[in-house]
Design a protein around this nucleic acid. Structure first.
Lengths: 208, 208
DNA sequence: TTAAATTACTTAACACCGTTAGGCAAAATT
DNA sequence: AATTTTGCCTAACGGTGTTAAGTAATTTAA
């Protein structure tokens, strides 16, 4: 009598179809033109059924935001663990991971930080988001502790780092899709150089 | 037979009413909830008459963007002229002007750089916008020329500065209205310190 | 002064949007 | 086999930007 299980499975499958269709539309036309009716069209249902799976459109978007932070968190965690013995290098690696995530997942980043989402908020209910902030903040604290300004505010340094990186990403992500960010050849692109320079500057301000 | 003149004057007055009503709504409810019908309600007309003054909603918003850049340009120009003899100080003053504009004209800034406007684009059809970029870029070139890295790219330095400032503003403008940006007492707030630090860092990278 | 032409404005509609209520038919349970 | 539950759709509400058609007032011309 696995009828309940089957129905649950079917419902879960429709949920996936909704997310897949939504993601497809976003990739093709952008977040701006994503609508419940368009999603329903693609999965050959009518729009009200979506409300059986997501409370409203915002909740649906929130699901993508959540997924984005999970992925971002993975990448930052990898960078964290790869430089566990060197705090300045770790900080740079984590922000580079952030940078790479933004360009490998443009649409996600735009939803996570761009349009209306409260940007750079430490508390936003998504645990992975807080874990990202925690890893970066602890590294900053480590750098500050080993430097000549132990009274520096790590939170403000975090904001400063974030503003450089996010600002640079903002420049590149909305406008020229491939103008400045061309990693075609082996040489790192100019933006990455700027980024590393800026972070190195902040680190040096913490140390000296 | 000044009937034509009178009609022109009347039409111009309605145009002003439209802009005033729109601005009032924005200040009360934000850009998100500004609609043509709401504007029409306030000026006691119906929505189609707005299209006699503005081609569409985007054109109306564009008018506010333009006005914003005019004001921003004034402030940056004043800073430019106040430090005509000292390029590093001039650069800092111009970015501080930018910073102050953003917080004195939150709604304008949000429209100019925030929501969907292509951020930091050098060419966007608004002459004042280009003048701002020109003043900053020429100052950066002056600094670079007097430094030890004459081959540095001024455009990229401009982007770096802009990303720091815009990033910091983004943090503060969307979230806590008065949390970090409290200039109540005489002491400059912490964000301004960060800002000056960051710009000083970039300048020092150009010089040394 | 009266008829024609222009202008100013409104009403109604189109095509969207997010969201909800009600109904119908198929499926599952009793 | 009758009843309950479920899944899904149709229709609608109130909102959006925008356009076309029509009406009433004003200005111009005869």
């Amino acid at each position: 009598m696995g009828v309940k299980e089957r129905k649950l499975r079917q419902k879960e499958e429709v949920r996936c179809q909704i997310l897949d269709a939504a993601w497809q539309i976003v990739k093709e036309e952008g977040w701006q033109s994503l609508s419940m009716r368009k999603i329903a069209d693609r999965i050959e249902y009518t729009s009200p059924i979506i409300y059986g799976h997501f409370e409203n459109k915002e909740a649906l978007l929130q699901e993508f935001t959540r997924k984005g932070f999970v992925k971002l968190c993975e990448m930052i965690r990898a960078a964290y663990q790869a430089h566990i013995d060197n705090a300045p290098a770790r900080l740079e690696a984590m922000w580079m991971a952030y940078w790479n995530f933004a360009f490998a997942n443009r649409e996600s980043y735009q939803l996570m930080y761009g349009v209306e989402m409260g940007c750079c908020t430490i508390k936003n209910g998504i645990p992975e988001s807080e874990e990202c902030a925690e890893m970066i903040n602890s590294t900053i604290q480590e750098i500050i502790a080993s430097g000549k300004h132990p009274d520096a505010d790590p939170c403000l340094k975090y904001f400063t780092c974030w503003s450089v990186v996010h600002g640079l990403i903002s420049i590149n992500i909305t406008r020229n899709p491939e103008a400045l960010h061309q990693s075609d050849d082996d040489s790192p692109n100019l933006n990455e150089l700027i980024l590393k320079d800026a972070i190195a500057g902040i680190v040096s301000q913490m140390l000296n």
